[in-house]
């Protein structure tokens, strides 16, 4: 796959839609095009994070370790960005990402990622809104879960 192909894929991603092609080309040039076979691991929960991945082709699963074993919490497809949390707030990887099929990614190093975000506020905003969206969803799940927990507690309470 040539650099130009990668740039075309990037251009189609809404997050990058407002960035001029030359800058996307620089992003593609300074990033690493990495291909994974099905079931290969992009990164594991708990590892230190040093890069984010942009999915160019294929699918991946986000898996979180839980007391009852690994749980798949989300699926990724083309145009998704994954792994940015660990580099944004310097925490270990919060989940494991596994290729769900033959997968092509662009591995954006920490420096290149920050470069991108600082140079193009709209990318920062895009990522912010994506994260806010996820936070919103998580909050909803949490509210739902705690409501159900309370119900259960009341149900099995001192009746």
């Amino acid at each position: 796959m040539s650099l130009q192909d990668d740039v075309e894929v990037l251009r189609a991603i809404p997050l990058f839609s407002k960035i001029e092609p030359a800058k996307l080309k620089l992003l593609a040039f300074t990033s690493e095009h990495l291909e994974f076979e099905q079931d290969e691991v992009l990164f594991r929960q708990g590892e230190p994070g040093d890069a984010a991945y942009i999915i160019l082709r294929g699918t991946a699963d986000i898996v979180v370790d839980s007391p009852t074993g690994p749980v798949t919490v989300a699926h990724l497809a083309r145009n998704d960005v994954v792994g940015e949390i660990a580099i944004l707030c310097d925490v270990p990887r919060t989940a494991t990402v596994i290729a769900g099929s033959g997968l092509a990614t662009l591995r954006v190093g920490k420096d290149a990622f920050f470069n991108l975000v600082t140079q193009f506020p709209q990318v920062g905003l895009g990522i912010m809104s994506e994260l806010a969206h996820r936070l919103h969803q998580t909050t909803m799940h949490l509210t739902e879960a705690s409501a159900r927990l309370r119900q259960l507690e009341q149900g099995s309470g001192p009746a």
Binding site: E32, H33, L34, E35, F36, E40, L42
Partner: peptide, 12 residues
Amino acid sequence: VLFGKIAYGVAQ
């Protein structure tokens, strides 16, 4: 031993 180059773009 390798007598070649490690391929770019292949994970790990």
